[in-house]
Design a protein around this nucleic acid. Structure first.
Length: 544
DNA sequence: AAAAAAC
């Protein structure tokens, strides 16, 4: 129905669906996950016959209270990582899990942990297990998972994260917790103040290790692990196995069972990407226009700077949009409540920094916008990975000014193909070469920077009227209402001079049937999306 | 260049 630049994960050999399993609901935020079997989104009719019968949760050796919670959540079949990891965790083995987003990784460790911990009770200030997460939002999501599956057990958990009252967290610790879910900074802080002892902690989970590495947490992690008894069970998860991660795993784990799950999602993933190049000062106006498209059900808009998040959000609200801001400088209470409102559909647009680029799972996101192109090309992949889940077409649209040419080239080099230009009705787009235009006194030419492109057709040019909106011909389909083909645009002198390789008729290939490299890259975020009836579970409290 | 995470 729209310019197809589709990435289809269905080309993956193991893209078999795993119906009724614990993965993010991937349905509209707030829709119940209670009966996934009844939802066509999960049970695909055209499913080829499986060679082996699907494993059942009831075969995994989990006790009745946990099994009942799983049943009530509507799940019957474990995902591959759950089926593989749970038995080893129950055997007290260390586990090295290489698993991406959407694999059901979180339940893969929370379920057996509940089983292991269900036998006895915690003592004051001595948590029995510890889960380390890189961001506060992720920690919250894991806590929600414990609430959901531990509802028939009498276990405590505590959320130990920055930005919230330490006194309250200390109180909870003093009462004794079975599961401590923490971000590294606050954990070390509290430990150094004597608020907690880790000597009795016999079960450690290091989640999102690659992200911990990216964020510079590894020294903290090493320090924390050093505080734990060597007589412990360790579960270590990472989306990738870079050498540095491997080194850490070797250091923290003993004779681990290694489990690798290749594909995140059970169903084909499709993302339609597009790029709009306009003057920096026009970006807000163009974004508003794009947001008014009926196809935009809900959207995350990424900015590079926290300040710009605030400015853009205020501007959108002023123009009548239902928008909220999310970045690391906002009070934690606001962060959580904004995220909750967005998930519940109370807010339609979430304007945020890269705090939400990875790790936050929001099901059923129709659009991701890059108001700014990210500085690091990998972040582009992470950002747009928030949409296009579970067989639905996601939309990932980026705004750029001619000044951002270098950023766009870096992204295109990473993903291995150009981002097609997207026509927006009534918007005249600029050509990259217009970065040479003097802008506000500090404009300067950067034309020479293109030398390193080595003649590779890196981007669409505007050498002909058609190529003003170079959407892959073969895959082109009627565009959505607000993105009718761009009106014939006038040529600027520079565009006529620009004879980039794209002008020679080299087709601009969309994703087509190829699986683009970036889709094979790890998508890293914990897979928990609470259903609407889980709303009350995001505070530090006891499991019912 | 920025953001994240401790106060």
């Amino acid at each position: 129905m729209s310019p197809k630049t589709n990435a289809s994960a269905s080309a993956e050999p193991d893209a078999a669906a795993h119906p009724v399993s614990i993965v993010p609901p991937d349905t509209d935020a707030g829709s119940p996950v209670g009966a996934p079997s009844a939802s066509g989104a999960v049970d695909l009719p055209a499913e080829p016959a499986e060679a082996a019968p699907q494993p059942l949760f009831s075969d995994l050796g989990l006790s009745e209270p946990i099994q009942r919670a799983i049943d009530e959540a509507g799940y019957r079949h474990p995902t591959p990582i759950q089926a593989q990891a749970i038995p080893y965790v129950l055997m007290s083995r260390d586990v090295l899990g290489v698993a991406q987003t959407g694999t059901g990784k979180t339940a893969g460790f929370t379920l057996p942990m509940l089983e292991i911990l269900s036998g006895s009770r915690a003592r004051a200030r001595m948590p029995r297990s510890l889960i380390l997460e890189p961001t506060r939002e992720l920690a919250l999501q894991v806590a929600e998972n414990f609430v959901k599956y531990g509802k028939y057990l009498k276990l405590n958990h505590a959320l130990l994260i920055g930005g919230e009252s330490m006194a309250e967290q200390k109180d909870v610790l003093n009462r004794g917790v079975d599961v401590l879910i923490a971000t590294p900074g606050r954990l070390i802080d509290l430990f150094e103040r004597g608020g907690l002892l880790l000597t009795q902690t016999r079960l450690l989970v290091i989640d999102e290790a690659d992200r911990m590495l990216d964020m510079g947490f590894i020294p903290d992690i090493e320090k924390i692990v050093g505080l734990l008894s060597p007589q412990r069970q360790t579960l270590f998860f990472s989306a990738t196995m870079a050498p540095e991660i491997r080194r850490l795993a070797d250091m923290f784990l003993q004779n681990p069972q290694e489990i690798t799950v290749s594909r995140p999602s059970s169903v084909a993933t499709t993302i339609e990407a597009g790029l709009v190049v306009v003057d920096e000062d026009d970006k807000r106006r163009v974004l508003r226009q794009m947001l008014r498209d009926d196809a935009v059900q809900n959207a995350i808009v990424f900015c590079n700077r926290k300040r710009d998040v605030d400015v853009l959000c205020k501007s959108l609200v002023k123009h009548g949009f239902s928008a909220g801001a999310l970045h690391g400088d906002l009070p934690q209470s606001v962060r959580f409540s904004t995220l909750e409102r967005f998930k519940a559909g109370d807010l339609k647009i979430l304007v945020c920094s890269d705090v939400a680029a990875r790790g936050i799972d929001i099901g059923g996101l129709s659009h991701v916008f890059n108001f700014d192109l990210p500085f690091h090309p990998e972040d582009y992949v992470h950002r747009i990975g928030r949409t296009g889940r579970a067989g639905r077409t996601g939309h990932a649209y980026s705004l750029a000014s001619p000044h951002d040419r270098g950023l766009a080239e870096a992204i295109e080099a990473l993903i291995g193909h150009p981002i097609p230009r997207l026509a927006v009705e009534g918007v005249t787009q600029l050509d990259w070469s217009e970065e040479d235009r003097p802008r506000g006194g500090k404009g300067r030419g950067r034309g020479q920077k293109t030398e390193h492109r080595g003649g590779k057709p890196a981007r669409p040019s505007a050498a002909t009227p058609v190529e003003a909106t170079p959407v892959p011909e073969a895959a082109a389909a009627p565009p959505p209402s607000a993105r009718k083909p761009a009106p014939p645009r006038h040529h600027r002198e520079r565009e006529l001079e620009d004879t980039s390789t794209q002008a020679n008729g080299t087709p601009i290939t969309g994703f087509g049937a190829d699986v683009p490299a970036f889709m094979l890259l790890p998508r890293r975020h914990v897979a928990i999306a609470p259903s609407a009836d889980d709303e009350s579970t995001h505070t530090v409290d006891e499991l019912a």
